[in-house]
């Protein structure tokens, strides 16, 4: 498939936003359970704001993918059958949930507002945050399933697609949370750094699992089934056009072979190896700069990862577009 930068930015940016919100909320839950020092509203408000910026940026990027963005509202209508439609509904829901969560912290609202007295300082945000967590995970599911549900794109049609989208989003979000904590909540840095390492390494395992799986895939379609002629030797002589078409532009990555073959090493190093080394260094001291560098490196790596994710998918329609002549 041809990797579209709109979709690469959409999926990576919202991944960061989702992961960051989950990190912030996890921090809050731990704080409430007295496992970690509780933080001021300021940390949660800034965290939510930052998550919102990433999510909205992703949303904006997605519009560049559409031929008719002004009709985008229509795409919420087919949620019964289409994962894309479900994503279109869930993404604004996540943005809304995080916005409300942030506002509750900003205004210091509590359940006493509704006449309940729980004795907890942040009872309302805890409840709202759990709802936010739910929709955030739902969004990972929708985003992953958009790709995983196309059964003949075998590189994508696997639960690993959803798992990788989730883990990689979480990793980048937790890493950003660690950087944020380095300024606003130094007591949490250690916590986020450890989780970032755990998630990043899990992501490495599942991403490698999918690389291994995809390397072993055997295409189910071939020229025999494509044109229905049972013969061992079939060659295309002409694809019915000389100057290319949508079919030749949308479904082939078009990059030189050396680039395609090497990019997976690039992303494996940038997404996993470099950040883990950098944040291990940051463990002892709460080095803001080193965490930011780690985050930016990982994000660049994620762009490469997403590029490869698309480029690697081999569409059966390509069988019909082998030879110009």
């Amino acid at each position: 498939m041809h990797p579209a930068f709109s979709v690469i930015f959409l999926t990576t940016l919202i991944g960061v936003g989702q992961g960051l919100f989950l990190a912030i909320y996890t921090g809050e839950v731990y704080g409430t359970l007295d496992l970690l020092p509780a933080q001021s509203h300021n940390f949660y408000v800034t965290g939510s704001m930052l998550a919102l910026i990433f999510l909205v940026a992703g949303l904006v990027a997605s519009f560049f993918h559409l031929g008719h963005p002004e009709r985008a509202w229509r795409s919420a209508s087919q949620w019964r059958t289409s994962w894309l439609s479900r994503e279109v509904i869930v993404l604004p829901a996540v943005i809304g949930a995080i916005l409300v969560y942030g506002l509750v912290h900003l205004l210091g609202l509590k359940l006493t507002l509704f006449g309940f007295n729980t004795g907890l300082d942040n009872d309302l945000s805890l409840i709202l945050g759990s709802g936010g967590t739910l929709v955030t995970f739902l969004l990972f599911l929708c985003t992953g399933m958009i790709y995983a549900c196309i059964k003949f794109l075998k590189e994508w049609a696997s639960p690993l697609t959803v798992i990788n989208y989730t883990l990689l989003g979480l990793a980048s979000g937790f890493l950003l949370a660690a950087a944020l904590a380095a300024i606003l909540a130094p007591a949490l840095v250690q916590f986020y750094v450890v989780w970032t390492i755990i998630i990043t390494i899990s992501g490495l395992v599942t991403r490698i699992a999918s690389l291994v799986r995809n390397a072993r895939l055997k295409p189910q379609s071939n020229l025999k089934t494509a044109i229905g002629i049972r013969h061992g030797k079939i060659q295309q002589r002409s694809q019915g056009q000389m100057g290319g078409s949508f079919n030749t532009r949308e479904f082939f990555h078009g990059a030189p072979d050396w680039f395609f073959r090497n990019i997976k090493w690039v992303f494996l190093v940038l997404v996993f190896v470099v950040p883990v080394i950098l944040i291990s260094l940051a463990m002892g001291n709460s080095g803001f700069l080193i965490l930011v560098v780690a985050f930016v490196t990982q994000y660049i790596g994620l762009i490469a990862e997403r590029w490869f994710f698309f480029a690697q998918a081999n569409h059966p329609q390509n069988l019909y577009y082998q030879t110009v002549g």
Binding site: H65, L66, H68, P69, F152, F246, P316
Partner: peptide, 17 residues
């Protein structure tokens, strides 16, 4: 149609342009 191209990905025959 919003031109999202998703349907063309979902057609194994490359019939949509």
């Amino acid at each position: 149609c919003i031109g999202c191209k998703y349907c063309s990905w979902a057609c194994p025959y490359g019939a949509r342009e």
